[in-house]
Design a protein around this nucleic acid. Structure first.
Lengths: 119, 119
DNA sequence: TAACTGTATTAACCGTACTAGTACAGTCAG
DNA sequence: CTGACTGTACTAGTACGGTTAATACAGTTA
């Protein structure tokens, strides 16, 4: 479900955040679908439950999931309300595109990439 | 020339790397143009020269600049040879696009962004 | 009741970013 | 040649944050 890369300098909880966010935005995790419990995912990944909780906490702050004490954590129906993150991501994409252009990637190739993602 | 954000969790040397990389790929720093010396930039940013050196080191490893002992550091003529970085960036863009789609950004809007970068 | 859920708190360990200080060799203008 | 610049290298110390560990508590549910 999620893979960790210990060689990556990025913290584990961020890798988990990204992994879950990806599952949600790609539709692999449907709305109101139950996520693994904090302890279960910790056991599966062989890491501390606190690290999982931290990832869940931040994802809840971003609106991607919601947690109910005693019941569990679930994928949010719609996280599209996060305008700040949208602008942040657009800024990142803009910088990456500029560098890719410099690296010789054609406009056509990038346009195709956009089409592919929306296909 | 370069601004640091101490609230950012990312290391200073990475922020410097990104700043210089941006100056290079946007053409603000032309080919073989001289970069500030390790000590000069360190003084300007009020940080330790070692941190600057680390950033320069990594940028040289990526081919974005080259350094000559005794002379200085300079922007590379062509950094397009870095195929690994190209693929890395393309992967990142793909993930960002998927999330932006989920956040409600239209395909047209992203296609326009590509056009704008290449304008 | 028992086993699950999320949540909270505290202490400790450890990697690493960063600083500080120093040193050496190459370059270049005076 | 001299002196001031350049990049480079190394060591030592500090500080911060990620991660683990061990508990504890309250809500949920079969």
């Amino acid at each position: 479900m999620i893979s960790l890369n210990y060689r990556d300098s990025r913290p584990i909880y961020e890798q988990i955040e990204d992994g879950l966010r990806k599952l949600i935005v790609t539709g692999a995790l449907g709305a109101d679908e139950k996520l693994p419990s904090v302890r279960a995912l910790a056991a599966q990944l062989a890491i501390n439950p606190n690290t999982i909780q931290r990832a869940y906490n931040e994802l809840e702050g971003e609106g991607y999931i919601y947690s109910v004490p005693g019941k569990g954590s679930f994928a949010s129906a719609n996280a599209g309300a996060d305008e700040a993150r949208r602008r942040e991501l657009l800024g990142k994409v803009r910088e990456l595109l500029a560098e890719l252009r410099y690296l010789g990637v054609s406009q056509q190739e990038l346009a195709d990439l956009v089409k592919e993602v929306f296909a």
